[in-house]
Design a protein around this nucleic acid. Structure first.
Lengths: 173, 173
DNA sequence: ATGCCAAAGGATGATCGGATCGGATGGTCG
DNA sequence: CGACCATCCGATCCGATCATCCTTTGGCAT
């Protein structure tokens, strides 16, 4: 089994909140789960359980997240035997940006870093100008990274360490 | 009074969590409050109330945050009349990195973006490699931005829009 | 010394995101 | 048709974060 540690340890943390740097925990789950789905079967339905097996991804929660992704148009779903979730588009056509937009929204990437909603107009913001290039690079990263690339990277790494996801076609686990 | 909107509107948000992009809400408060402190009086004690007046900064909460910053060695404090909080070092010597480290911690900037604690060793991570340059730029931003610069920018913007912080020396509000 | 003042600290409540569960819905296959 | 299967949906629990209040501590000035 894959020994993937928990997202961010709560811990005692004299200094350190559990807030991730860029993605919410939910969004990180979404990204990882979609990558695994793509690796397992990029063009067919995959059950949630199949995706989460052998990882620390919480199946119930991933199912809920996937529902949101269906509404967002990134996934399709099918009930009943042989059902599950499938990509709505080709992996190359799904950008990291799309996933983040669907789950976390993109307001935070257009808003002020320190949380002032109108720092570019009349509201003073201590770092708006300096931060702009950083923000640009992040957005560029989100826009230029595709599910195709990410799942490719994941597959390669899994191969290197000698692990395989439960790749099954028309079969059961 | 300054009409500074709340950090991130909760709202109905079909897609969007209230989690800021990089800093926790608490950390954003810390940054803004320290900037205001610096603008008001960079080399003396300033009362919390004085800092928060005319802003949306929650005074009680800022007071609590400042306590942590005292423990972290970024601020000093003095009780009684004429007391308050003061910078422990010159504004040029205080990096944005220091504030973030004290409040949010820096684990998130060294960890994997998708939350895998050991993605660089044996754990597969779908985007570790591609994200590296982005992370580098963010860290560089945090390390090269000083309180001096930020408060300077804040002061300039306040001036442009014709607002002044309650700058009082030895006086009362 | 005494009174005012401001931070220190603890206790508490509100809110939100993360996570779980049970039943409803609807499709598939025999 | 009817049993099974997997998503869908709502309700809910939990913990951390955010925020407030009140009491205590200690320093300054008169």
């Amino acid at each position: 089994m894959i020994d993937i540690a928990r997202p961010i340890l709560p811990g005692p943390s004299p200094a350190g909140r559990s807030c991730p740097m860029m993605y919410s925990t939910t969004c990180a789950y979404a990204i990882r789960a979609m990558c695994r789905l793509t690796v397992i079967r990029p063009d067919g339905y995959v059950r949630v359980q199949e995706i989460c097996d052998g990882s620390d991804l919480p199946a119930y929660f991933v199912a809920k997240i996937f529902r949101d992704l269906v509404r967002a148009g990134l996934l399709t779903s099918a009930k009943g035997r042989g059902g599950g979730f499938a990509l709505a588009r080709r992996p190359k056509q799904i950008k990291l940006y799309d996933i983040v937009e669907a789950i976390d929204g993109i307001k935070q990437y257009t808003q002020c870093v320190v949380g002032l909603s109108k720092c570019d107009d009349t509201q003073p913001c201590p770092q708006h100008d300096h931060f702009k290039p950083v923000r640009m690079q992040i957005l560029s990263y989100l826009n230029n990274t595709t599910l195709d690339q990410m799942s490719e990277a994941l597959a390669r790494k899994l191969e290197i360490i000698g692990l395989t996801l439960p790749i099954t076609i028309e079969g059961k686990s």
